[in-house]
Design a protein around this nucleic acid. Structure first.
Length: 1059
RNA sequence: GGGCGCGUAGCUCAGUUGGUUAGAGCGUCUCUCUUACACAGAGAAGGUCCUCCGUUCGAAUCGGAGCGCGCCCACCA
C-alpha cells in the first residue's frame, strides 16, 4: 500500500479545462468518429443529428440532445457497431432571416435597401460564422459525430435533393399551386404553415351590428366591408322568411347588395344565429364561398392595410382602424351592442408574435389527402400513419404515438411557399414574354368581382389606370438599382398601357413576392384553369464541362426551334439543376408526347452532343399563361424563377436521407438508411418528425428511422422554459462547461430525466455532478497509487475474500443492468445505477476494505477498468483521460463494452455491511468521535463463522480497538447495543454512556420492532394471503417473522440488563 | 371544447409485470481534515405516496370520481 501522498503524480482534483480539448483532438484525429475506420462485422448504427439552427449558439436543449445521442453513439461503438452520427446545421429560413434583419437594422439598413443578392450574401456570412460557433460548441460537448460527413440544409447536395423532391411530388400531383386562404404574417411578409401559428388568449370587444334584417356578431369589424352573404340555419324559425332573399342594405361604405343563404354551418345557438361571411379572411368562410361560388374579395393586404375594397378607409392599417369603423357604424345607428369581455384566442406568428392575417393568396401546397401514384393510391398521410401503426417506426415514449396519429389525421394541405429571401428557391421557372409585366400585384386593392364587368373591358381600364400610377411610384422609389424581373400576367391591355407610359425597358424590383392573382377573385372555373397549367416535362442531359449559361442558351435556341415549329402554340420553360436541364412543353392542352411524338427522332438529333431521353421525369416546369415563344426575345430577362422560397421544414423533412446522398443511390444511403434512432425534443414531433416520416416514406420508400426518442424541455429552477428572452435564469451550457467540465454538464442533463418529460436545470445540480466526476477521478487515483502501474486485465480475476466475491457479483449485475438499460434508452436509470455502484459500493465499501485486505491489485485494476468503460458513454472526457493511465496506447472510445460474467449474488456481505453500519450508528448515538477506536463485542449466533472471518474488515471500517466475535456473549455492563439479522452488537462504553438515554433508545426500538412483528403476524395469519399469494412471497414473510421475533427477544433482554 | 401528462421527503425526481418497514441526489442537522477525495467521510432527522370510492389476500402502482398544475390540438361567426 502506498501511504505517502507525495508519491502520487496525479493531482487531487480533476481539472477538466486542462484536458478536454486535447482529448477531443485525439479522438477526432483517430478517425473513430467516422464509421469507415471502425472494424465491425455487425450492422451499422446510424443517428442523424437534428441540425441546430444556423442562427447562433447552442442552448441547454441542444446540450440534452447532444448528451443523449452521444451516449447512444458511444455505447453502440463500444459494442462493436459501425456508428455513424451525422452532424449538420439547418438554415432555418425565417429565423435566420429575422436575425440578420435585426443585425442590419442596427446599422440603419433594411434588406430592401441592400437588395436580394447583397442581403443573402450578408446572411451567408452570418451563417458561416454561427456554424463555426456551433461546431466548436458541439465539440466542447464531447460529441462523437462524424465531421467528415457534416451537412448543411442549404448546401449543394441538399439543394439538389430539395429540387428533386419537389419535382417528384409535383409530378405525382402532390405539389400544386393554388389560390387559397393562408396564414399571413404582415411583419415577416410571408405565409406560415398551420403549425407556425400560435394562439394567445385575449380579452377583446365583440361587436353586434345591425345588418339589414339581422344582427351579426364579430370580433373583427375591419374585415366586414364586403360581406354580402347572410348565412342562417335552414331550420331556424326566426329567419325562415329570409331564405333566398336579395336585398339592399345600408353598410359601412353605403349600400351593398346582400343575399341570404340557408346552410347548416350557422349555429342557431351562437350569438344571434345569423352571420355574414368574409371569404377572404377566414378559412371557414372561404370554404363556404367555394361551395356557393361567391367572390373572394381581399379586404386586407399583405401589409395589414385595408384595400380599395374598404372604400374611404383604403390604405389605412386594418387593425388600427377598427374603432374608427365602429364609430362610423355607430353614427349610422348600425351598432346593436358591444360585449366588452369577450375572450378568444388571437392567432399570432410563432416567430415574431405579430397577429396573423388569414388572407387569400396563390401559394404552393403539398396535398396530403390526394391519392398518390407512387404510393399506389394511398395518400401521404395514410402512408405516414401506416408505418407507425405497423411498428416500422417506434415512438418512445409510447404515449406520443397517439398524438402523432391525431395530428396526422387532422393534417390539412401544407403550404410550403414562403415569401422570404433566405431559403431554397422554389424550383419553378416562368417565362416572361416580352412586353409583359405583372401589374396585378400593384393594383392589388382594385377588385373586379363580376364576370360582366370583366368582359366589358371596364376592369382592364380600371386596372391599367391604377397600374400606371403605381408602377410610376415604384419606379421612382427604385431608381438606379438592380432589379429582379417581374413575371407576366395576361392583363395585356393594362400592360400595354403601362409600357407606353414607361418605355419598353423596365425591370421592377420587389421586396414583396410576386403574385399572379386572378383579379382578386377565385371561382371554381378559375381554379380548374390554374390546375390545368401543370404539365409533363421533357428531360435532357448535356455534356459535362459546359457552363450553365451555355446550356441555358442552347435550351433557348431549342425552344425557339420548337416554338417556330409550333408557332402559335404555348411553349415554356422550366426548372434547372446542374448538370441537367429540363424543358417543359405544353401544347394547347395536349401532352408533349401527343404533340411532338412524330418529331421525336428529329429533335433528338437536332444538335450534336445533345441527348434527349424519355427517362423518368426529374424536373418540373410551370408555364406562364401568356405570350408566344416564337415572338419572344431571348434575353437574359426571359426566365424568371419563382421568387418564393420553401418552408424550411420541407428541406428538414429530407434530412435523414438527403444527408446520405439521396437522390443519388450512394453507398452511404444503402449502408446507413433507414437510420436507427432519431432523438429530439417532443416539441418537434409535428414540425419535423412527422414530416420526415411523410417525406421519407414517399421519396425513399423507407421509414427515415426505426425509433424516435423524445426528450423533454429543459426548464429553469422556476419551471419555465429556458429562452433567450429570459437570460437571467437560462443556463448557458458553454459557461457551465467552462466552469464544471463537459462531463458534469452532461450528467446533470441526463440523470433524473426520463423520456418525454421536462427537466429542470440549475447550477447547483451541475456542480454536484462535478463532485461526482471528481470522485471518479480520486477513485482512479487511489487505485493507481495502490496498484502502482495500471494494466488492463482481460478476464475477471479470481476472488479471494468475501468482499472480492461481493464486488465482482455486484459488477456483473451492474453490467447487465447497464447493457439492457442502454438498449432501451433508459439513460437516467443506467446512470443512477452506475453512479450508485461507483460511489456507494466500489468507493465507500470496497476501496476501504482494500486498504486492510491487500493483494487486490488485479481486482482493483479490473473493476476500475470496467467502471471506466461503463461510464465512458456518459462522461467520455474524464474516462478517456483516466484510461490513458492504463498505458495500452489504445483509446477507450473503441474498447469493447464489458460483458457480464456469472458471479452469483453474495448475500453474506450484506450482513457485514449492516454490522458495520450498526456499530457506526451506536458510535454516533454515543457521541464517539469518528477517529476514536473502541472495543466492540458481537454475539453472532449462527453467523459466528462468517463474522469471525471478517474481523479485520469490521475492525477497520467500524474503527474498533478490539473486536470480539462469539456465538454467545454475556452482555457487558454499560454497553450500547443493537440487533441486526439475528446478531447482537455491544459497544461497551464505561463511563461514557448515558444509561437512561440508552434505555429510552432501546425502548423506542423495541416498540418499532413489536409493531412490525404484529404486522407480520397479521399478514401470516390471514388465510387468504397464505393460500393465494405465491409460495416465495409467503416463505419470505415467514423468514422475516422469525428474524423479527428474534430481534424482539434480544431487545427485551437488553432492556433487562440495562436494569 | 378535445387529447395527453403530472401531483411521492424542504427542492428536483426514481419507483419495472400490484408483493421487504416507499428510494436517490441536493438541501438541513450532528460529528470529523481517519494515510484517494472537505468537490470528502460517518451518522441523523424528514413522507396521510393530492382526496375519496372501488378491485384485490395485498395498491404509490390497477379502475372510477373529484381537486390542483402543466402541455398539446382545435377554435366558432
Amino acid at each position: 500500500m502506498t501511504k505517502n501522498k507525495e508519491k502520487s503524480s496525479i493531482p487531487s482534483a480533476y481539472n477538466p479545462q486542462g484536458v478536454e480539448d486535447r482529448i477531443y483532438a485525439t479522438w477526432e484525429k483517430s478517425g473513430y468518429f467516422a464509421p469507415d475506420r471502425l472494424v465491425s462485422k455487425g450492422r451499422p448504427f446510424t443517428i442523424s443529428m437534428p441540425p441546430p439552427n444556423a442562427t447562433g449558439v447552442l442552448h441547454a436543449g441542444h446540450a440534452v440532445m447532444l448528451a443523449l445521442q452521444n451516449i447512444v453513439a458511444r455505447f453502440q461503438r463500444m459494442r462493436g457497431r459501425k456508428v455513424l452520427w451525422l452532424p449538420g446545421t439547418d438554415h432555418a429560413a425565417i429565423a435566420t432571416q429575422a436575425v440578420v434583419e435585426k443585425l442590419i437594422a442596427k446599422e440603419g439598413q433594411t434588406k430592401n435597401q441592400l437588395g436580394r443578392e447583397a442581403f443573402l450574401e450578408r446572411v451567408r456570412k452570418f451563417v458561416s460564422d454561427s456554424q463555426g460557433t456551433i461546431r466548436r460548441q458541439t465539440r466542447k460537448m464531447g460529441s462523437s459525430c462524424d465531421w467528415s460527413r457534416e451537412r448543411y440544409t442549404l448546401d449543394a447536395g441538399l439543394s439538389a435533393a430539395v429540387s428533386e423532391a419537389f419535382v417528384r411530388m409535383h409530378r405525382d400531383g402532390l405539389i400544386y399551386r393554388g389560390y387559397r386562404i393562408v396564414n399571413w404574417c404582415p411583419r415577416c411578409h410571408s405565409t406560415l404553415s398551420d403549425d407556425e401559428v400560435e394562439y394567445k388568449e385575449q380579452k377583446t370587444k365583440f361587436y353586434y351590428f345591425k345588418y339589414g334584417p339581422v344582427v351579426i356578431g364579430t370580433a373583427r369589424p375591419e374585415t366586414k366591408f364586403q360581406d354580402k352573404t347572410i348565412i342562417v340555419h335552414p331550420d331556424d324559425a326566426r329567419y325562415k322568411h329570409l331564405h333566398g332573399k336579395e336585398m339592399e342594405i345600408e353598410w359601412i361604405e353605403g349600400k351593398v347588395k346582400a343575399h341570404v343563404i340557408a346552410d347548416k354551418v350557422a349555429d342557431k345557438d351562437f350569438g344571434t344565429g345569423a352571420m355574414t361571411i368574409t371569404p377572404a379572411h377566414s378559412f371557414e368562410d372561404f370554404e363556404l364561398a367555394q361551395k356557393y361560388k361567391l367572390p373572394v374579395v381581399p379586404i386586407i393586404d399583405e401589409d395589414g392595410k385595408l384595400t380599395q375594397a374598404a372604400g374611404t378607409f383604403a390604405g389605412k392599417d386594418a387593425r388600427g382602424s377598427r374603432e374608427e369603423i365602429v364609430a362610423k357604424l355607430q353614427a349610422k345607428g348600425l351598432v346593436d351592442r358591444i360585449d366588452e369581455n369577450y375572450v378568444h384566442n388571437l392567432s399570432v406568428c410563432y416567430r415574431c408574435g405579430t397577429p396573423v392575417e388569414p388572407l387569400p393568396s396563390k401559394q404552393w401546397f403539398v396535398a396530403v389527402n390526394k391519392p398518390s401514384k407512387v404510393l399506389k393510391g394511398k395518400t401521404l398521410k395514410q402512408r405516414a400513419a401506416e408505418v407507425v401503426r405497423a411498428g416500422d417506426v417506434e415512438i418512445i415514449p409510447d404515449r406520443f404515438t397517439k398524438t402523432y396519429f391525431h395530428w396526422m389525421n387532422h393534417l390539412r394541405d401544407w403550404c410550403i411557399s414562403r415569401q422570404i429571401w433566405f431559403g431554397h428557391r422554389i424550383p419553378v421557372w416562368y417565362a416572361r414574354p416580352a412586353k409583359a409585366v405583372d401589374i396585378t400585384y400593384f393594383v392589388h386593392g382594385a377588385t373586379v368581382d363580376n364576370e360582366a364587368e370583366k368582359a366589358s373591358g371596364q376592369a382592364d381600364a380600371k386596372l391599367s389606370e391604377l397600374g400606371v400610377r403605381q408602377v410610376r411610384e415604384l419606379k421612382d422609389q427604385v431608381k438606379g438599382q438592380t432589379f429582379d424581373v417581374v413575371f407576366c400576367s395576361d392583363l395585356s391591355r393594362a400592360v400595354a398601357t403601362a409600357e407606353t407610359a414607361f418605355g419598353d425597358r423596365y425591370k421592377i424590383v420587389q421586396d414583396k413576392r410576386l403574385r399572379e392573382c386572378d383579379y382578386g377573385t377565385l371561382t371554381r372555373a378559375n381554379e380548374k384553369k390554374v390546375n390545368a397549367m401543370q404539365s409533363d416535362v421533357i428531360d435532357t442531359s448535356y455534356p459535362k464541362g459546359e457552363s450553365l449559361t451555355d446550356v441555358e442558351n442552347r435550351v433557348r435556341n431549342f425552344l425557339q426551334e420548337i416554338g417556330a415549329k409550333y408557332a402559335g402554340k404555348r411553349v415554356a420553360i422550366v426548372a434547372h439543376k446542374t448538370p441537367q436541364f429540363a424543358l417543359e412543353v405544353l401544347l394547347n392542352g395536349k401532352t408533349w408526347q401527343e404533340a411532338i411524338a412524330s418529331d421525336w427522332r428529329k429533335t433528338k438529333s437536332w444538335q450534336p452532343g445533345w441527348k434527349y431521353t424519355l427517362r423518368e421525369l426529374t424536373y418540373v416546369g410551370l408555364q406562364a399563361p401568356a405570350g408566344e415563344l416564337s415572338s419572344a426575345k431571348a434575353s437574359e430577362d426571359r426566365w424568371q424563377q419563382d421568387p418564393d422560397t420553401l418552408d424550411t421544414w420541407f428541406s428538414s423533412g429530407l434530412w435523414t436521407f438527403s444527408t446520405l446522398g439521396w437522390p443519388e443511390k450512394t453507398k452511404d444511403l444503402k449502408s446507413f438508411h433507414p437510420t436507427n434512432l432519431m432523438e429530439t425534443g417532443y416539441d418537434l414531433l409535428f414540425f419535423w418528425v412527422a414530416r420526415m416520416i411523410l417525406m421519407s416514406t414517399y421519396l425513399v420508400g423507407e421509414v427515415p428511422f426505426r425509433q424516435v426518442y423524445f426528450h423533454g424541455m429543459v426548464r429553469d429552477k422556476l419551471g419555465r422554459k429556458m429562452s433567450k428572452s429570459r437570460p437571467e435564469t437560462a443556463i448557458d451550457p458553454v459557461d457551465m462547461i467552462q466552469k464544471y467540465g463537459a462531463d458534469a454538464m452532461r450528467l446533470s442533463l441526463v440523470i433524473g430525466t426520463t423520456a418525454g418529460n421536462d427537466t429542470q436545470l440549475w447550477e447547483e445540480k451541475i456542480s454536484s455532478y462535478r463532485n461526482f466526476v471528481n470522485k471518479l477521478w480520486n477513485i482512479a487515483r487511489f487505485v493507481s497509487m495502490t496498484v502502482g502501474e495500471l494494466k488492463p486485465v482481460k478476464a475477471a480475476p479470481t476472488p479471494k475474500t468475501l468482499a472480492d466475491r461481493w464486488i465482482l457479483a455486484e459488477l456483473d449485475a451492474l453490467i447487465k443492468r447497464a447493457t439492457t438499460g442502454l438498449d432501451h434508452y433508459e439513460f437516467s436509470a443506467v446512470g443512477e445505477a452506475v453512479y450508485e455502484f461507483t460511489w456507494s459500493k466500489f468507493a465507500d465499501w470496497y476501496l476501504e476494505i482494500a486498504k486492510v485486505e491487500g493483494g487486490k491489485e488485479k481486482i482493483l485494476s479490473y473493476i476500475l477498468q470496467q467502471v471506466l468503460k461503463l461510464w465512458h458513454p456518459f462522461t467520455p472526457f474524464v474516462t478517456e483521460h483516466l484510461w490513458e493511465r492504463f498505458g495500452t496506447g489504445k483509446l477507450l472510445i473503441i474498447q469493447s463494452w464489458p460483458k457480464a460474467g456469472r458471479a452469483k449474488v453474495v448475500k453474506d456481505f450484506a450482513l457485514v455491511q449492516s454490522v458495520v453500519t450498526a456499530i457506526r450508528n451506536l458510535r454516533s448515538e454515543a457521541k464517539v468521535e469518528p477517529a476514536k477506536r473502541v472495543p466492540v463485542q458481537i454475539a453472532a449466533g449462527k453467523h459466528t463463522r462468517l463474522l469471525k472471518s471478517q474481523v479485520p474488515v469490521i475492525t477497520a471500517l467500524a474503527r474498533c480497538s478490539e473486536l470480539t466475535v462469539e456465538a454467545k456473549l454475556a452482555k457487558p455492563s454499560q454497553a450500547a447495543s443493537a440487533v441486526v439479522s439475528g446478531v447482537t452488537i455491544h459497544l461497551p462504553l464505561a463511563g461514557l454512556l448515558d444509561v437512561s438515554k440508552e434505555r429510552e433508545r432501546i425502548t423506542r426500538e423495541l416498540q418499532e420492532a413489536k409493531n412490525y412483528l404484529k404486522q407480520l403476524e397479521a399478514k401470516l395469519s390471514n388465510k387468504n394471503f397464505v393460500e393465494r399469494a405465491p409460495e416465495a412471497v409467503v416463505s419470505a414473510e415467514r423468514e422475516k417473522l422469525t428474524a423479527q421475533q428474534h430481534k424482539v427477544e434480544k431487545l427485551k433482554e437488553q432492556l433487562l440488563t440495562l436494569g
